[in-house]
C-alpha cells in the first residue's frame, strides 16, 4: 500500500514541478507549486510527520502561496515574453545532461542510503513531540525566529509602503 501511495504522489509532485518551470504565466506556475506542496504534505503524512504536514498546508500552501498569488494579481503579471529562442544546442545538451546527473546522484544515494524501509505507522511525530522539542532542546532558535519574523514584517513595511 505504501509504495503505491508514494508513487502516485511522487509522480504528482514531479509533474507539478516540471509544470512550474515550463509554464509561461506566473499564475499557472503558482498553482503548480501549490500542487507540489499538497503532494508533499501527503508524503509527510506517509512519513508520520503529522504536524509538519498540517503546517505545510496551513503555512506554506495556505499563507505563502496566497501571498504569491496576491502579488501576481496586484502587479498584473502577464505571460512571460521569451526574448529569443534558446539555442537547440542548449536544449539538446541541457535535458540529457540533467537526467544523467540525476541518474548518477540516484545511483549514489541508492547505494549509500541505509537499509530498511519506512513503513507507515511505526513512528509518528505529532504536535506533542514537535512542541516538546521546540520548547526544550530548540528553545533558542525558536525565540530567535520571532525576531526573524519581526524583521520580515519590518522589511515588508519599510520597502513596500508608499509613504513611511
Amino acid at each position: 500500500m505504501d509504495p503505491i501511495l508514494f508513487f502516485i504522489f511522487a509522480a504528482v509532485a514531479v509533474i507539478c514541478a516540471i509544470s512550474l518551470i515550463v509554464q509561461k504565466h506566473p499564475i499557472k506556475s503558482a498553482l503548480s507549486l501549490i500542487g507540489v506542496m499538497g503532494s508533499l504534505a501527503i508524503l509527510y503524512l506517509l512519513l508520520g510527520a503529522e504536524f509538519i504536514a498540517a503546517a505545510q498546508l496551513i503555512v506554506y500552501a495556505g499563507a505563502i502561496m496566497v501571498l504569491f498569488v496576491f502579488v501576481i494579481m496586484l502587479l498584473n503579471a502577464g505571460e512571460e515574453k521569451s526574448p529569443a529562442r534558446p539555442s537547440w544546442f542548449a536544449k539538446l545538451l541541457g535535458i540529457p545532461l540533467m537526467i544523467a546527473l540525476l541518474g548518477i546522484l540516484s545511483y549514489v544515494i541508492q547505494r549509500a542510503a541505509p537499509e530498511g524501509s519506512l513503513a507507515f505507522g511505526e513512528y509518528t511525530g505529532g504536535a506533542r513531540e514537535v512542541g516538546r522539542a521546540l520548547f526544550t532542546t530548540y528553545l533558542l532558535p525558536f525565540e530567535i525566529t520571532s525576531v526573524l519574523i519581526l524583521i520580515a514584517i519590518l522589511g515588508a513595511v519599510v520597502l513596500a509602503k508608499k509613504e513611511l
Binding site: P141, I144, V147, L148, I151, G155, V158, L159
Partner: peptide, 17 residues
C-alpha cells in the same frame, strides 16, 4: 545547525531590507 541557520537568515534578511 539550526541556530546557525536561523542566525544566518536573520542577518541575511536584515541586509536584503
Amino acid at each position: 545547525l539550526v541556530t546557525i541557520f536561523v542566525g544566518l537568515e536573520l542577518m541575511a534578511i536584515s541586509f536584503y531590507v
